[in-house]
Design a protein around this nucleic acid. Structure first.
Lengths: 126, 126
DNA sequence: CGGCCCAGTTTCCTTGAAGTGACCGGCGGG
DNA sequence: CCCGCCGGTCACTTCAAGGAAACTGGGCCG
């Protein structure tokens, strides 16, 4: 997997309207699809995630058994994250979501366009 | 579809760890799977949703073209919500999520159990 | 007149996720 | 001697989602 910085455009399908877990879990899983990665390697494609939030996401995923965290006692430090079988099992789901978005996001956005101004959050019904 | 009040146990798989859209969208789609329903009919199985939040959810889904809203000019008022083709297309996705959760939620919760106390949100690394 | 019905609305509040920017510790290199 | 590297941490703020509870409006029934 290439570490394309733009692999998640600002307009990421997996955030509208379908999300996996919290905001970044799905993207982390995708980043780890091709094999183990270090913290800093995850930050390259996930450049819109601050280290704090990335840490939190990875901690939660570790807690849930979706990834393993291996800290090598070297210098400078090296920490490697890897998908577990459980985490890998989410890949088909994420792919399905991605496919749905590819096929239907246009229709959704067109619908959203049509409803501009109509029936806002607090519509003046009468 | 029966309007079983307990069709969504407090422990709903679709909220841990995979969510569709906002908190309630997935459940609304499931509720509408069997055909059009009125606002009050949605409130029965979705009893943990307050009317305000249900309205917001339905408005967002309408805006995104997932449901249609039909207000009949009668008294007392009657408003019917129905899945569009777009919304119906999310059903396989939701089913896939449900299946994954059925198969893997135990493993996830066991992992979560194991990590109790270990590596909290702010671990004392050194 | 006084409720009741449905489908919401309105106001207020809590919670938690996410973001910002500064900082840390140990070591190897210049 | 100080800088940068890595993988974070810390304190602080912001923002939106969600929830609780009371209220609305206009017919219709008694």
């Amino acid at each position: 997997m290439s570490l394309d910085p733009d692999m998640f455009p600002s307009y990421c399908p997996s955030s509208v309207p379908v999300r996996i877990g919290d905001k970044w879990t799905g993207m982390v899983i995708r980043c780890l699809e091709g094999g183990p990665r270090r913290f800093g390697e995850l930050r390259v494609p996930l450049r819109r995630v601050t280290p704090k939030v990335l840490t939190e996401t990875l901690r939660a995923m570790e807690r849930d058994g979706l990834v393993t965290r291996t800290a090598h006692d070297e210098n400078p430090p090296r920490v490697v994250y890897e998908l577990t079988g459980l985490g890998r099992g989410l890949l088909p789901l994420i792919d399905a979501v991605g496919t749905w978005c590819e096929n239907n996001l246009d229709a959704l956005l067109r619908a959203r366009e049509r409803h501009q101004g109509l029936r806002p959050t607090a519509p003046a019904m009468q």
